[in-house]
Write a protein that binds this DNA or RNA. Structure first.
Length: 486
RNA sequence: GCCCCUAUCGUCUAGAGGCCUAGGACACGGGCUUUUCAAGCCUGGAACACGAGUUCGAAUCUCGUUGGGGGCACCA
């Protein structure tokens, strides 16, 4: 049940790369679900501390997609909650001050190594088949000397002073105890020479200042978690609960990437996937309610979500199941909602709806057949205009020499029917089949072809009753004639 | 190379020592719906990576091996 823990605050902190990655959507979703389930706050923060990666319009697009998916945040760039700004590039003085604090208390130091020198070190280490880590060349430069060099205009970065020995053990909410030795960590740059912080500094400072209680993020951050925890300790702050989510994978099990298909939420959106389906699908990549329910709305997810039920192993993004969920969620939408979704599809085909009630009946008839909303445009045209052609394969399969005559007879008997209902149609067709001493299917298949031009579709009796007597009779006669002469 | 994480059907997963000759879903095969399928129903095949322990008993606990993934930037 929803406990009203007002103190819970989580955040989704993407870097604005131009589009929302489905993995990012899942991270955002889990944060959102966790917050909403617990009556807490969900915050959007933009991590744009890499100036070289700036993308025009990325922020707007990100926000639009997040809102489209239904993940409304309580605080963010365009929604203040007294913890702003929520864009890191607008918080530079804060990071600088905190970096200086760390220098003052001896937990960080100025480093003057040039990128060239670091390259050299890296190369040598690679030759020796050793992993790269900074050789701590500047770690012992006295503070006074460093400050003089800065005053003289020398370029510098600030690095955190990682202990040389010992290890960090912490409790991950998903993985349990994780231990990493300090010696495998290097003295991470926390403030770059352009004055921007690196992720490691910014994330810790902001999470603390914004009162974040639970950090729910991708597994790729697990190895650097000790650095963050160390920074909390250096600052004298309590660390939030950490929860590292398993990764989303390509079919070949590598980290989900652009190379192997669509990764942008926008791509799926434009292909006709419903937000409900995408959200439902992505939620189930790493989480499940523990019973056999599979189709969930966002509200149901909020109700049932818990971090305890999040798995540890990576999950392959499998489109087949997403398709199925899309179909399920289309059925869950009301006919009226679908009407607004389908209307434009018909309009581009030059079809304007004049009879709303009729439109809704057509939707009711077809909605169970749809995997994508756009399928409606394809399956429904004969409800709005005369079939222009008859599917060739259908003619081959169902049209016999006697068919034209039979359909003419069918038109005649239909003409005499008072109430053109589903049941009346069925009765009349079966009676005629008896009379002609043929199987009903000898009438049914050609009639469908005549009336819709297609071989497949919803129940023929219902289809005909929706079309109405006039139309059905007219089309039967037209087809009968067309086939006879051909 | 080093470090960390991880391991049940093709895929998503249930399973927290006996309820498991391992359950569900997607996909796939077969059948039914004396009307189609693109819907529905029924049905079939399909998995505990391996090896040692612990235990009366292990998919479940421990260790190791192997496989997979991630990380090791003045990127996030």
């Amino acid at each position: 049940m929803v406990s009203m823990n007002k103190n819970i605050r989580v955040r989704f902190a993407p870097s604005p790369t131009g589009y929302l990655h489905v993995g990012g959507l899942r991270t955002a979703l889990y944060n959102y679900l966790f917050a909403k389930h617990n009556g807490g706050k969900f915050i959007l923060r933009i991590e744009d501390t890499d100036q070289s990666r700036k993308v025009e319009g990325a922020l707007e697009n990100l926000i639009r997609t997040l809102k489209w998916a239904g993940l409304e945040y309580d605080e963010g760039p365009d929604k203040d909650g007294n913890c702003g700004p929520y864009i890191q590039s607008e918080r530079l003085p804060i990071y600088r001050q905190h970096a200086l604090d760390l220098i003052k208390n001896g937990n960080a130091y100025y480093c003057f190594c040039t990128p060239e020198r670091l390259d050299d070190v890296r190369k040598k280490q690679t030759e020796l088949k050793r992993s790269f880590s900074y050789d701590r060349h500047c770690r012992e430069i006295p503070l006074g000397e460093a400050e003089q060099r800065i005053a003289a205009g020398e370029k510098y970065v600030v690095r955190m002073k990682v202990p040389l020995t010992g290890e960090m053990t912490f409790e991950d909410a998903i993985r349990g105890k994780v231990t990493i030795a300090y010696k495998v960590l290097d003295d991470q740059v926390i403030l770059k020479s352009d004055g921007f912080p690196t992720y490691h500094l910014a994330v810790v400072v902001d999470d603390h200042l914004m009162g974040i209680t639970h950090v729910i993020r991708g597994e790729e951050w697990l190895p650097s978690a000790p650095k963050h925890l160390l920074l909390y300790r250096f600052f004298g702050w309590d660390a939030p609960v950490l929860a590292h989510l398993p990764l989303l994978l390509n079919p070949d099990k590598s980290k989900l990437s652009k190379r192997q298909g669509d990764v942008a939420v926008e791509d799926y959106r434009s292909k006709g996937y419903l937000k409900e389906a995408i959200v439902n699908f992505v939620a189930f990549l790493g989480w499940n309610p523990g019973d056999e329910r599979e189709v969930f709305t966002l509200d149901q997810l909020i109700h049932d979500f818990s971090l305890e039920r999040v798995g540890k192993a990576g999950a392959v993004f499998n489109v087949e199941k997403l398709n199925w969920l899309n179909q399920q969620h289309i059925r869950l939408l009301s006919d009226e909602t679908l009407a607004e979704m389908f209307r434009p599809m018909l309009e581009v085909k030059g079809i304007r709806i004049s009879d709303e009630a009729y439109f809704l009946r057509v939707i009711g008839l077809l909605k169970e057949k749809l995997t994508f909303p756009q399928d409606f445009g394809e399956y429904s045209t004969y409800f709005f205009e005369e079939p222009k052609t008859y599917e060739e394969a259908g003619i081959q399969k169902y049209w016999e020499p006697e068919t034209s005559q039979r359909l003419t007879r069918l038109a005649e008997v239909f003409d005499a029917v008072e109430e053109f209902s589903h049941t009346a149609i069925e009765t009349v067709m079966k009676r005629l089949a008896d009379e002609l001493q043929i199987k009903t299917s000898k009438l049914i298949h050609p009639a469908r072809l005549a009336v819709s031009g297609k071989q497949v579709g919803p129940s023929l009796y219902e289809l005909m009753s929706v079309l109405g007597k006039e139309t059905v009779v007219r089309r039967l006669r037209a087809a009968s004639k067309a086939m006879k002469t051909s």
